[in-house]
Every structure is written in C-alpha cells, then in structure tokens.
Amino acid sequence: MTLTDKSPDQKPMTDVAGPAHPLAVLWRAVTTIWSVPKARIGVVMLGIFILGAVFAPLIAPYDPTANDFGRSEDMTAAHLLGTTAAGQDVLSQIIHGARVSVFVGFVAGLFSTIIAVLIGLSWGYLRNVTADVINFIVNLFLVIPALPLMIVIAAYLQNGGIGMIILVVVITGWAWGARVLRSQTQSLRSRDFVTAAIFSGESSFRIVFREILPNMTSLIVGSFFGAATAAILAEAGLSFLGLGDSTTISWGTMLFWAQNSNALLTGQWILLFAPGLCISLLATSLSLINFGVDGLSNPRLREGAKR
C-alpha cells in the first residue's frame, strides 16, 4: 500500500519542489475525475446541461415566453412536449430553464464554498476563544432548518428574483462545508509538514492557505458540488412555492405554473414530469462527479482501490 504503490514513472524527489503549471494541475484534476466511471457519467451529463444552457436560444425551437400557441396542447410534432396552459412551448421552456438552474447552482455553490473555506480553515487552525464562538455560530446555522429559513427570508424580500434566491441559498448553505473543512484542518494541523512550516517561521495565513489548503482539494471541490446541488434544489423549491419571480422561466416556476393551472387534472403529466426530471438529473450529475473528487488529493480513496 505504501512503497509498492509507487508508479514506475514517478519523478525523483528533486523535481517535485517546483510548483506545476496551473493548467497542468487542472488537467490532472479533470483526468482524475474522468478515470472514475460514475464521475465520468456525471461529467457528460453536466456537460450536456451546460451546453444546453449556453446555447439555449439556438437550440430551443420557439421563444419560451411566446404564448400565441394553442393552450394545454398534447405532445405533437410542432410541440414535442406540448404547450402550457398559457400557450407556451414546453420544450423551449425546459431548455431555457437550464440557464437559471445552472447559473444559480454555480454562483451560489461558489460563494458558499468561498465562505466555507475561509471560515472552515481558519476555524480549524485557531485554538482560542474565537474558535468556540465560530463553533457556536456554525452549529446554529447547521441545526436551523434551511428551507423554512429560506422561505421566511424570501417572503420578507418579496419576489426578489434570482439574486435574492442566490443570497438566501448562500446564507443557509455555507455552514455544512465549513464544518467538514474544519475537521479536516484540525486533523491536518497536527501533521509533521505543518509543524515543519511553523518552525521555519511561516505566517499562520501562509500555513493555512498554502500548506494545508492544497491537501484538502477533494473536500473543497466536494463541498462545492454539494453546495451547488443544494442550491439547485433550493431554487427549485422556492420557485415551486411561488417565492421567486414567477415570470422567470425556470424548472421550479414551470412546476409552480403546472400545479396552479391544474395540469394534474387535465392529465398533462409531461408538464410535471419533464422539469422535475431535469432538476433531478442535473443534481444527480453533480453528485456523481463527487464520487470522483475523492481521488484528487488522496489516491488511496480512488474508487475500486483495494482496502
């Protein structure tokens, strides 16, 4: 497991000192994730959604807001997924809806992760009263049920649109990542390489963000995908309750309108099925990629490796 695992092409120790080119690091990360079959499926699925979101105006057969088609039509050649009760093309709405979900997922995931990294790492490294105070605050945010808090804030902010939803998701979403990163920082800070850095006189800031942080790449990437998944589901939930801007075209608002226009009674199951399936598939793709990130900073955790 230890010495025998070294691959024959491993470079001698002297070469390791120089930091690799950032693009080379990124490429290595992508190939590591790609090497895990489950993660590979996730990457492909996510790629399709991102492409769909970016090129939505080119792919979508109609303008998603155009409402001059027949109302509540079934699936036909002209409208592959039928039309809504307001006479809009469902397929075009699905394709355009990807934009909101992908955008909210990535932006909210990114901000949550940045906060989680800043708080989690400094909190794990500190050993004074401040750590206890942060501990209390993080635990408070962890136990307060996120969705009710989001609903309450969203209700006060009144139809704030996507910006409001991102804000609400970040407020409630950073604590989980912070806690995970804290415990890993705590276990890393007693390792020899950290002690060596302390004795060589490095500043705390440098130790935390240059020595410890690179060892937690998988956890950070993992918490990003986790936060993005949560953000996508939260956006859908809030929009479904009608708390977002209900004129935005997103999968959540499509479900909101589907239930409010009684698609259940008229039997237009595709109106319920399609947006929800897209939300689940997008969230699944992120979870699947997460199976591959374990190997980023710890080759021993690669899927399929013998225990």
């Binding site: 589901l233 259940l264 929800g276 979870s287």
Partner: peptide, 26 residues
Amino acid sequence: TVGGTFASAFPYFWTALLLLFFLGYV
C-alpha cells in the same frame, strides 16, 4: 448507491407530484 444518489436528487415536491398524479389521480 446509484439508486440512492439519483433518488436523493429528486426534489421532494416532484416525487410528491408524480405520486399524487399517478397513484392519486390516474
């Protein structure tokens, strides 16, 4: 594992709507 990953990505309200539609209405 795969089934659980997929199912936990279902939005609660979507599972609810599908069950309601197929088992309740249809």
